[in-house]
Amino acid sequence: MDNIIEIRDLSFSYKDPEGKLHPALHNINLDFERGTYTAILGHNGSGKSTLAKLINMVVTADDGVIEGSIKVLGKEVTTAISDDDAYEIQCRIGMVHQNPDDQIVATTVEEDVAFGPENLGMDPKLIREKVTQTLAAVGMEGHEKSAPHRLSGGQKQRIAIAGVLAMDPECIIFDESTAMLDPQGRDAVMKTIDELHSRGDVTIITITHYMNEATDADRVVVLNRGEVFMDGTPEEIFTQVEKLHSVSLDVPQVTELFYGLQKAGKYNGKLPLHTNEGAEELAKLLKAER
């Protein structure tokens, strides 16, 4: 199988300035297959962001103690890696961060989207094409000359996605990219992610603590206290309501509702994950009641 990222027996501890170690990840084994969409779930402090930062070498052996291995695009990134290899990986694995304001570099939207391709030394004509293409892909065409600070959070985040897309990455990691957005902004960003996934050529990894955002993924990985707690399809994961509750994680609201109905003996079908499925089931139930 063609794995874009392979993680073997990975443990990581942060080192604080006094040299004390703070374990963040423990014995992680994960493979990310090319073209798939994986959601990594977990509480704050479960190690999910650390994992993403290790993959993209924002966190390195300088920040703590790494054991085990991470292979990105076939290259080991945990040990000494040449600057050029590191640079290549960073260009091919894009990352969208949490705060939209902290990833916008330029004073106009088009200049910002062009920042990555400019760094790659692309031809200006090609950059222009990329800017037009990627802004259309995130639904932000017509904002080329806008000033980023006048856009909403969701719009800024989509500009950031366009900026990453413009570099033609093979994989995009969304590190809690919706955490600072309002519901509309969150919906717009999730829709963009779904569209990217349906194109099928990029591998997508989202890191989130919103359960609703994980239901559209091909695969859900639940991290708890630095360990892989669960790993499977959204159906496999979210139907194990009790197991998730035991580490005080929620399931999507609609699943929670049907879980309640199930416990009360009113429902015995498959637990729905999406609101519209839930609505249909509910309509059926109500009809049967009558």
């Binding site: 924002v58 894009g94 902290d102 990555g116 760094n119």
Partner: peptide
């Protein structure tokens, strides 16, 4: 954070950069 984001977007100084 901005510095991290810039590194993630392949920034490594002015040499070899082009302009939109």
């Amino acid at each position: 954070d901005l510095a991290d984001a810039m590194i993630c977007r392949g920034y490594r100084g002015g040499s070899g950069r082009t302009k939109l």
